[in-house]
Simulated assay, not measured.
Amino acid sequence: MKELRDKEFGGERPLFASHCLRLESVTFHAGESALKYCGDIVAVRCTFEGKYPFWHVDGFEVKDCLFTPGARAALWYSRNLVMTDTLVEAPKMFREMDNLSLSNVRIPDAQETLWHCRGVKLRNVEVANADYLFMHSSDIDIDNYRQQGNYSFQYCKDVVIRNAVIDSKDAFWNTENVTVYDSELTGEYLGWHSRNLKLVRCRISGTQPLCYCENLVMEDCRMGDDADLAFEDSSLHAVINSNVVSVKNPRSGSIKALAIGETILDENLLAPGDCEIVTEI
C-alpha cells in the first residue's frame, strides 16, 4: 500500500482513481472530489475542507479525521466504509451508500444525512440539527446513540435501535419493521403510519403519539404527561407501566396501562373498533 504523510492538496480531483493508498495527517483544502472513484483507502488524522471528497469509493477506512463545514456531501455513492473517532461538521453526509459502520462519531450538523443507505451500523454516535435524518434507508443497527433533529427515520425499513435518546418530531413515519429497546423517545406525532413498530422498555413523550399504526407492539413502556390523544386508528398490543393521559379511537388489539385519564371513543372510531382497554391501579 502506497503511503502519503504530512501532505496538502487542493483543487479538483487531486487523487482521482487512486487505489491501495494510506493517507496520514493529510489536509485536503478547498476543491472538489479529492478521492473520487477510489478504492482501498485508509485515512488517518486527515482534514477534509473541500466538497465531495469520497464519491464512488469502494472500501475505505476513516479514523480520527475532521470534515469541516466546507466538506459538504462528502460521502456519496460509496460502499464498505468504516469510520471511527471522527468529527463530521459538514452537512448532507452519507447518501446512496452500502455497508457503512460508524463508531465514536459526532455529527453536529446532521441535516439531510444518511439518505438511501443500506447496511448501516452506528455505535456511540451523537448527532444534532438532524432534520430529515435517515430518509429511505434500510438494514440499520444502532446502539448507544443520541439524536436531536426532526422528521427522522422516515420511510426506513428493518431497523433495530438500542440505548438511544431521540428528540425528534415526526420520527419513524411510514417505517416498516422497526424495533427500539431501552430508549427515550421525545417529540410530537411519533410513529404515524408505521407498520410493525415495536417499542420495548421505552419512555415516550410528546402529543398524539403512535397514531395510524399497523401492528404496533409496546412492552413495558412508560408514557409522559404530555403524551395525550394516543393510538388513534391504530392496531396494537400495548403494555404500559405508567398512566396514560388520554387514548383516542384505537382501532383494534389491546391496551393495558396502570391508568388512563380519558378514553375517547367517538363517531370517528373506525371498524372493527374492538380494542380491549384494561387498567390496573
Results as ranks from 00 to 15, higher is better:
residue 68 T to E: 04
residue 69 P to H: 06
residue 70 G to K: 06
residue 72 R to L: 04
residue 73 A to K: 13
residue 73 A to F: 08
residue 74 A to S: 12
residue 75 L to D: 03
residue 75 L to T: 09
residue 76 W to N: 10
residue 76 W to I: 05
residue 77 Y to G: 04
residue 77 Y to F: 10
residue 77 Y to R: 11
residue 78 S to C: 07
residue 78 S to N: 07
residue 78 S to K: 07
residue 78 S to L: 06
residue 79 R to M: 11
residue 80 N to Y: 09
residue 80 N to V: 04
residue 81 L to R: 01
residue 81 L to F: 05
residue 81 L to Y: 01
residue 81 L to C: 12
residue 82 V to R: 12
residue 83 M to T: 00
residue 83 M to E: 00
residue 83 M to F: 00
residue 84 T to D: 05
residue 85 D to E: 08
residue 87 L to G: 02
residue 87 L to Q: 09
residue 88 V to M: 09
residue 88 V to K: 00
residue 89 E to A: 07
residue 89 E to Q: 12
residue 89 E to W: 00
residue 89 E to P: 03
residue 90 A to N: 10
residue 90 A to T: 09
residue 92 K to N: 13
residue 93 M to G: 11
residue 93 M to S: 06
residue 93 M to F: 11
residue 93 M to E: 07
residue 93 M to A: 11
residue 94 F to R: 10
residue 94 F to I: 10
residue 95 R to F: 15
residue 96 E to N: 14
residue 96 E to F: 15
residue 97 M to I: 14
residue 97 M to T: 12
residue 97 M to P: 05
residue 97 M to W: 09
residue 98 D to M: 14
residue 98 D to R: 15
residue 99 N to D: 14
residue 100 L to V: 15
residue 100 L to H: 11
residue 100 L to M: 15
residue 101 S to N: 09
residue 101 S to E: 13
residue 102 L to H: 02
residue 102 L to V: 03
residue 102 L to I: 05
